[in-house]
C-alpha cells in the first residue's frame, strides 16, 4: 500500500512541551480509501490529527502525494490538499453559514461560487440556513457545516477528528453516510479518528487501533470488527 499511498506517515512523534503523546506512528491512507484510527480518550487521536495538519511541532515523516510536508505550516498543508474537520466542529459561531463556507474556500484562488452551490446541493439544510449564524445551528447541522467548510478548500484528503462526538446515534449514522458519499461520489480519501468503533469500522476500508500513543493493531474494518479484544474494549461486548 505504502508505495502509492496518498498520505504516508512514518515514525510520527509529537506532544505538548516536554510531554510526548505519540511514540512513532506509521500509517498510510491510499487514494480513494477510508482509513479509521480507533482509540479511546487520551489515546492520542486529536494529537495525531493536529500533527498531520501542522498545528503542533512534530518529528517523523509526513508525505502527501509523494511530497514531504513534515515541516509545512498549516496553511501550506491546506493548500497542498489536506483539509481538517476539527474536534468539536470548530465552526465560526459568530459568522453566518455562508461566511463559514467562504472561510473554508479561503485558500482557493478565483471564484468559489460553484463550490458553494455544489456543497449547498449536498447539504440542503445549510442552503436553507445560509444567512443564519453558525452558532444557532444544531450540533448535527454544525457538524455538516464543518464538513462542508473543509470541502470548500477542494482537498484530496479529508481529516475528521471524532466526528461522532456529542451527536445522537441517528445523526451520527446520517453523518457517516455523508462521509461514505464523499468517497463514492466525490472521489475523496478520508482519515477518521474515532472511538465509535461500530459505525466507523463498518465504514472503514482499513483501520488502526491506537493505544496511549502507539498503534497496537491494524486490519480491514471487518477484520477488526470481528476481533474479540476490539469488541471487548470498544464495543462493550464481554465474552
Amino acid at each position: 500500500m505504502s508505495g502509492d499511498a496518498l498520505l504516508a506517515v512514518t515514525g510520527l512523534t509529537a506532544g505538548y512541551g516536554p510531554v510526548e503523546v505519540l511514540h512513532g506512528l506509521d500509517f498510510t491512507v491510499g487514494e480513494g480509501e477510508i482509513v479509521v484510527i480507533l482509540g479511546a480518550n487520551g489515546a492520542g487521536k486529536t494529537t495525531t490529527m493536529r500533527a498531520v495538519s501542522g498545528m503542533i511541532p512534530r518529528h517523523g515523516t509526513v508525505e502527501f502525494g509523494g511530497v514531504d510536508i513534515s515541516g509545512a505550516k498549516p496553511d501550506a498543508i491546506v493548500r497542498a490538499g489536506v483539509s481538517q474537520v476539527p474536534q468539536g466542529r470548530g465552526t465560526f459561531t459568530d459568522l453566518t453559514v455562508e461566511d463559514n463556507l467562504e472561510c473554508g474556500g479561503y485558500t482557493v484562488k478565483g471564484s468559489i461560487a460553484e463550490d458553494l452551490e455544489r456543497w449547498y446541493g449536498v447539504f440542503p439544510r445549510l442552503a436553507e440556513r445560509r444567512d443564519q449564524k453558525a452558532g444557532s445551528l444544531s450540533g448535527g447541522e454544525q457538524q455538516m457545516l464543518a464538513v462542508a467548510r473543509a470541502m470548500m478548500s477542494r482537498p484530496k484528503l479529508l481529516l475528521c477528528d471524532e466526528p461522532s462526538l456529542g451527536l445522537a446515534p441517528l445523526i451520527t449514522k446520517e453523518l457517516f453516510k455523508v462521509l461514505g458519499n464523499l468517497r463514492d461520489e466525490h472521489g475523496m480519501s478520508l482519515l477518521i479518528v474515532e472511538q465509535n468503533a461500530g459505525m466507523s469500522l463498518a465504514l472503514a476500508d482499513r483501520a488502526y487501533v491506537l493505544e496511549t500513543g502507539s498503534i497496537v493493531a491494524t486490519g480491514t474494518g471487518d477484520e477488526l470488527l470481528a476481533d474479540d479484544t476490539i469488541k471487548e474494549a470498544y464495543l462493550g461486548v464481554v465474552n
Partner: peptide, 23 residues
C-alpha cells in the same frame, strides 16, 4: 473583502482559522 472575512474568522476562532489556511 477576503481579508475582512479572515479578520472576522480570526476574531471568532483562531484554531479553526488556522485549519482553513488563514495565516
Amino acid at each position: 473583502t477576503k481579508i475582512g472575512l479572515a479578520m472576522r474568522a480570526v476574531a471568532n476562532n483562531q484554531e479553526s482559522s488556522n485549519l482553513v489556511g488563514i495565516r
